[in-house]
Write a protein that binds this DNA or RNA. Structure first.
Length: 630
DNA sequence: TTTAGGG
DNA sequence: CCCTAAA
């Protein structure tokens, strides 16, 4: 399946910028390729490939996350461009897009919009009847807006075939009005006249009666915002507006991103039924909507405030990036409530990131309220976003998958720092092999070496967790989806294998079970030099065990202490609290006892660490396993 | 670097 | 085992 996303920017001369991005990965048949294409729409409505200039011209919008939306006058459509669903257009041929594009043009001219967005879906050519430029709406349940519907219907009457009327109708409406999520049909048609934005007094009536926020236009939403908060907003992010309004009305953060029906200033209900059916339909058809979301950059915000989230699999609940605060920054008060003030530790950040990646319900106490279709919201920037890193590495985007579709989304504050995920390898390999998620021990060191190789710091990579290159490698697990990615991966593996010297930088230490003799040595060492003198113990007692570091000794000792506190009493009771693992040789109780004695002694000793003499004869005590001495 | 402690 | 902070 192939999609064309055509982003059209109307410069009031019908000039549209057009960019095509063919992802190499997507040319593989295994995954559903998604092709986003920018096209220039000529005056006669035909689509022509973008020129370099066009691309450059439009790149601004695609590459610059902090593109300033407000300066664009009458930018409703710009906003929608950035926030709304893409449409999927069944597009047999570009030449046949004329009728549809007339629609676009008429609309854009009428509204003076600057940008339009479409996804032109060129399905299997065989599926597409010629010269019938049909538009497939993924959210056919959307309400037509006044503007969109009007324009659309006119165009339908004139240019569309009967076959495509319905689809086109809803789709165009959606195109102009669509919010990023599919939403319920609300039978309350909004009065277009309410969108008098600049009246001095807020139009409170907009919230009177039953109003489905999803059906409101940007202006209406702004008005509703004004009525809710008593001030104006220039935000054109519908999602944001809706959430804000809903939050304001419900005085709660736990609001769905869509489907809210406002009745007399209160949220009276939400209707996710249609969303579900919509999802089902989408699942059946294999269509998956993507949306172009470009947020106003808010660099200073918490890492979670702006990112493009995508869930790997279908049933994950989706999260809307609701934290995009008003670009104007006049929402500081509300803003702080959204964001943590304390700067968390790195680890905390990392875990937070993970949480938000895996569990979208962190701030969402009621996942059920969040329709799954919210996935449509969060996605993808369509831009290829190819920036060349300082070292010539291109990793500004990552590839997210949506039910088989692959899209590029930029990394935004989601860089995982620190060591790679444990499940990274299994994840990648699972995707690649479509096999069970068994961790292939064999390739693990190799892949880890990739990380080392990618990091310019070599074996100091651990110490340099923020090396961008490493991040790219880590976060690019999704890139392993297709065979080319894996091939690259393997190539890296090969090249990395050739440089084993840097290996020990990142690789996780091979787990070596502690042998009994090692434990004995450790206990002996502790008894001799005192707990805490790990380096000393290591030097003197573990000279022949080069793989045991002082930290290892410390950790092991700690584990022994724990074992002492748990295992030992249990054994006294005679009942094994935990079923003994036969594969694990239990530490002899005598040793545990000794550990316990030593621990108690040294902890009581209050830092007194000179049991040297005391334990000088421990050696034989140990050997005898008697511990009667202690 | 080493130690302590959380994960 | 890993990671980090604090010595």
């Amino acid at each position: 399946m192939k999609f064309d996303l055509s982003m059209e920017m109307d410069d009031s001369h019908g000039t549209m910028v057009n960019k095509s991005e063919e992802n190499d990965f997507e040319k593989k048949g295994t995954s559903d390729p998604v092709v986003y294409q920018l096209v220039r729409v000529e005056g006669d409505g035909t689509l022509v490939p973008a020129t370099e200039d066009d691309v450059l011209q439009f790149e601004h919008f695609l590459h610059n996350e902090k593109v300033d939306l407000p300066p664009i006058e009458d930018a409703d459509h710009v906003e929608e461009f950035f926030n709304n669903d893409c449409m999927l257009l069944k597009k047999p041929d570009l030449e046949d897009g004329s009728s549809k594009l007339e629609t676009v043009e008429a609309h854009t001219q009428k509204l003076g919009a600057n940008l339009e967005e479409n996804i032109l879906q060129s399905l299997d050519d065989s599926l597409s009847p010629p010269s019938d430029f049909r538009i497939h709406s993924q959210h056919s349940d959307k309400l037509l807006t006044e503007q969109g519907a009007n324009v659309t219907r006119q165009d339908n009457a004139s240019t569309e075939t009967t076959k495509s009327t319905v689809l086109n109708d809803s789709c165009c409406a959606e195109k102009y009005k669509a919010d990023a999520c599919s939403r319920s049909v609300c039978d309350t048609s909004t009065d277009p006249s309410v969108s008098g934005v600049n009246s001095s007094m807020p139009d409170f009536s907009i919230l009177r009666g039953e109003v489905c926020l999803d059906d409101l236009t940007i202006r209406e939403l702004q008005e509703a915002f004004r009525a809710t908060f008593g001030r104006q907003t220039n935000v054109k992010d519908k999602i944001w507006l809706k959430r804000r309004i809903t939050m304001g009305l419900t005085n709660s953060y736990d609001v769905p991103s869509s489907g809210c029906v406002v009745k007399d200033y209160k949220i009276v209900g939400k209707d996710a039924k249609n969303d579900m059916s919509d999802m089902d339909e989408r699942a059946k058809t294999g269509l998956r909507a993507t949306s172009v979301v470009i947020y106003p950059g808010n660099e200073g915000d918490s890492p979670s405030s702006s990112y493009y989230q995508s869930e790997d699999q279908e049933d994950s609940s989706k999260r809307v990036p609701i934290h995009n605060d008003e670009p104007q920054g006049n929402l500081l008060g509300e803003q702080c409530t959204d964001k943590r003030t304390r700067k968390p530790t790195k680890r905390y950040i990392e875990e937070l990131s993970d949480i938000e990646t895996h569990d979208s319900t962190v701030k969402n106490s009621s996942p059920a309220k969040r329709p799954a279709h919210d996935e449509l919201l969060m996605n993808p920037r369509v831009a290829p976003f190819n920036e060349t890193g300082s070292l010539g590495t291109i990793y500004p985007t990552r590839k997210d998958t949506f039910g088989g579709f692959s899209v590029h989304v930029p990394y935004v504050s989601r860089m995982r720092r620190g060591r790679p995920r444990k499940d990274f390898i299994s994840f990648a390999v699972t995707i690649y092999d479509k096999g069970p998620s068994v961790e292939p021990k064999g390739i693990q060191p190799s892949v880890e070496m990739i990380l080392v190789k990618d990091g310019d710091k070599g074996n100091h990579l651990r110490k340099v967790p923020e090396v961008p290159l490493k991040v790219s490698s880590e976060n690019e697990h999704a890139e392993a989806v297709d065979s080319k990615g894996v091939r690259n991966l393997q190539a890296k593996v090969c090249s990395a294998v050739s440089k084993p010297k840097i290996k020990h930088g990142l690789t996780r230490k091979h787990h070596r079970a502690w042998t009994l003799s090692e434990v004995v040595k450790l206990v002996d060492g502790v008894a001799r030099y005192g707990a805490g003198k790990w380096s000393e113990i290591r030097k003197l007692s573990f000279a022949s065990y080069s793989y045991r570091t002082s930290v290892d000794l410390k950790d092991k000792w700690r584990n022994l202490i724990r074992a002492t506190q748990t295992q030992l009493p249990a054994q006294k009771d005679g009942a094994c609290p935990r079923k003994t693992n036969p594969s694990i040789i239990p530490i002899p109780p005598s040793i545990l006892l000794r550990v316990k004695e030593l621990h108690e002694l040294q902890s009581q000793g209050g830092g007194f660490t000179a049991p040297v003499k005391f334990s000088g004869q421990d050696g034989k005590v140990l050997q005898g396993k008697g511990s009667g001495f202690l």
